[in-house]
Nucleic acid binder design. Sequence first.
DNA 1: TAGAGGATTGAT
DNA 2: TCAATCCTCTAC
Length: 180
Amino acid sequence: MKLDKSFYLNPDVVAVAKQLIGKSLHTSLNGKHSSGIIVESEAYSYKEKACHAFNNKRTKRTETMFQEGGKAYIYLCYGIHHLFNIVTNIKNKPEAVLIRAIQPIETAPKKCTSGPGNLSKYLAITTSLNGVSLTGNKIWLEEGNQLPCEVSKRIGIDYAQEDALLPWRFTAKDNQWISK
DNA sequence: TAGAGGATTGAT
DNA sequence: TCAATCCTCTAC
């Protein structure tokens, strides 16, 4: 059961990030289908410094986040890693959920989906998918059983000062696939 | 047009 | 703990 567009339009990005734990992510790219259960996510909002679109900072890169929820926002980090985000909220309210780890449904080598960079590599996600709709047939999410989750502060955003302390990271409890 | 830095990773 | 690595943004 593919997630409806209304799910992504939720104005509470933190709630969306939490609800995403346990749902499944699917890609059908280059004739190959990949999928996994989302076990780790982080919320980002224009209201706080860690977000690229903080204070409505609109650039070519962040443009996708200003679009209506239900789109894929993918960007390159450290010149190496493709990071996959789910855009939420309505148009001109840039908020997104970073998917940090999934648990593969098919058999897969361990650790290959732990961390946003590896995750994107496993799913064949590249920046060419930036702006692609999540209700289409290239990349989409499906309904799943909500997993018990734990809350913690986000990772790798120390530059955001006090906002780095926000408990906006969600992980599936006792799951071996989450990043360290 | 040049310089600085980053939502990371994997090896030391 | 630290360096690799290159795209993006900002300042001049």
